[in-house]
Design a protein around this nucleic acid. Structure first.
Lengths: 350, 350
DNA sequence: AGGCGGAATGGTAACGTTATCAACGGTTGC
DNA sequence: GCAACCGTTGATAACGTTACCATTCCGCCT
């Protein structure tokens, strides 16, 4: 029993294949009665248009790609992927997943060819690809549609659909919360600088400090990568000095988890001896002991919205504006007011 | 500048499109000189065959799907996905990802239609879909090629390519290690019973106990799911009783992490008061404090091999046999010999 | 010598859809 | 009353590839 084709539907409905095609594509020029007939025939036969033939003959394609860093945070990427996939399924699109190395010199060419070679309707770009100006320019030049997920405080207004996550505001909120608890000696551990989220988070921290009249001390701000190991290393260094901070804000949960391990190996009791906060709210942070105070992003919603905006643009031709997400402060057990005896020397040192 | 087609290559090489097609498909009936000419033309034009047209016209398709539980362990799925994707890229295949609900009553129909509707060359099935006999039968009846990743002690010899992971042996090794440390009061926390891995791991545990002359005590074996929360709940219950075990073996790292949290909330010092072991070696287990003793699977290799076997079968028509993986025991800080004073009552109770 | 078989290649049609244009009946405008 | 126009539908060809069969050329067998 062969799969039904558009011709089967056409002859059952007593119209031409062309008319069926019009119904499938929601073209407005078909008479309502005809639409009914065709719809019924489609139902009866369980007809599903063949995406292969459609994109071979047509101008359009029904596949988009999700482009992501191939050395990913698994939870983040899989959530994103779920959201994107959900939006695709709703609209009958397929998803191609495309992990890639952001540092590859061939990245730009590779990605701009990808759309042609795989007959893609468009791309959903995640950081750091979504923040690569050279790539974006080339995609535009090649007329490749894309939606971006980026870290930013405001709408980039570059004409392409965009979901921007206000990491600055969330990092500000976390820092302000630590300050409100009574901390002043708050260290900040950076993430990879080639992700836009890193400076955004740092600036959120720095702005909160300044606006509360607390100077940002260089020795409390350490650069590094978004990894557990690097969080461990840096926290260890901070805690070994005699002017140790009373709180550590890690740029993501991995870093914070590393700091937690360092605290424990230094014999400190978190949160009483040291407060630790993370960012991202991956499942780990709820399961750690103590559970991490962090900023929670609804990653799968972010993915869903980015894909929806891209598909909407593709279908309606309009350029939909951007959308803002602000990660929410989630207070858990890893943060508490500082010990009086620990706060004193730190304040004196500042 | 249009994408080059097979005709462009043909006229540049001075042959017919048919011959170019033969070269692309590595058919042996083309003269060596002709192959050279065509290859050069392909290089010159940067020609890439159009997968859309190939699968529309041809018998074959160049996309396979990765089918997985939509409520997944992110690290596991993403690693698997990476491996599968690697194998696909090597051979010029595309990957469709297909998360699904294993409990859906429509699962079997949905998946057997999937292959036709999306013109798929085959499926890579992961647990528990790979262990669903009704699904496998239907796929076979519909002539859908698939490769399976399953938990099993031996080759299922069902004619389909298969990667089987010997969870039994690894669970045996973990249990034997705990026994060797001196534990006899070893609790076992089950995973979801509708995953084949759960009984496999349990039997590995039970066999190790029996072969070392230690009876399996019912009160030390608790059923449940593969989640942190359920690990926490069950460990708490075990530790609350006065006949608490000196070691807990969780069926996966999530469960073990839950047990770790329960131990901590009960004021126990792991590993000195209680040893805890997990299974799977997800990144969390290295970052926990103390780091978890566990069994390590090279998940991305498993994915790569499953996909390779499927693609090999599709290309060569041979039915490649199955392949065995045995997770390796990884000893970390969460296990230690039992305290003498804790072991005594437990031994007395056994 | 005639025929036969194999190796190498080409011609033709088709996969399932849609872009394009043509055609139809029925207004509307002048 | 005739042209221009609208809403609706259909015929045709094409997208890029490959299945299938036909053709050519050659050497070899009887």
């Amino acid at each position: 029993m062969r799969r039904p084709t558009i011709k089967d539907v056409a002859s059952l409905a007593g119209v031409s294949p062309m008319t069926v095609s019009r119904v499938i594509n929601l073209e407005p020029t078909v008479h309502a009665d005809t639409v009914q007939k065709v719809r019924r025939a489609i139902e009866t036969l369980h007809y599903r248009p063949d995406a292969t033939a459609r994109s071979l003959r047509g101008t359009r394609s029904f596949t988009i790609a999700l482009v992501y860093d191939d050395n990913p945070n698994a939870n983040y990427i899989l959530s994103l992927q779920n959201g994107v996939l959900g939006a695709c399924r709703e609209r009958g699109y397929e998803l191609l997943i495309y992990p890639c190395d952001p540092r590859s010199p061939r990245l730009v060419d590779e990605l701009s060819l990808l759309a042609k070679n795989a007959r893609l309707a468009g791309l959903v770009l995640t950081p750091p690809m979504s923040e690569n100006a050279r790539l974006l320019a080339k995609l535009k030049a090649n007329d490749v549609a894309y939606a971006r997920i980026i870290a930013a405080r405001g709408d980039p207004k570059d004409g392409a659909p965009c979901v921007y996550v206000d990491d600055h505001k969330a990092a500000y909120a976390i820092t302000a919360y630590l300050i409100q608890l009574g901390h002043t000696a708050i260290a900040f551990l950076w993430g990879d600088p080639h992700y836009r989220s890193s400076p955004e988070r740092y600036e959120g921290y720095a702005d909160a400090m300044k606006e509360h009249g607390i100077p940002v001390r260089k020795k409390y701000v350490l650069e590094g990568t978004y990894t557990f190991e690097d969080g461990f290393r840096r926290a260890r260094k901070l805690l070994a000095g005699k002017d140790a901070p009373s709180a550590i804000f890690g740029s993501n949960d991995e870093i914070a988890a590393g700091a937690l391990a360092a605290a424990r190996s230094a014999g400190l009791d978190v949160p009483w001896d040291l407060s630790i906060a993370g960012f991202e709210d991956n499942p780990f942070s709820r399961q750690a002991w103590p559970a991490l105070t962090t900023a929670s992003q609804s990653t799968s919603e972010i993915g869903r919205h980015a894909a929806s905006r891209l598909l909407e643009q593709l279908q309606k031709g309009t350029l939909p504006g951007s959308e803002r997400f602000v990660p929410e402060l989630v207070i858990r057990g890893s943060t508490a007011p500082p010990r009086a005896e620990r706060r004193a020397p730190a304040a004196a040192g500042a």
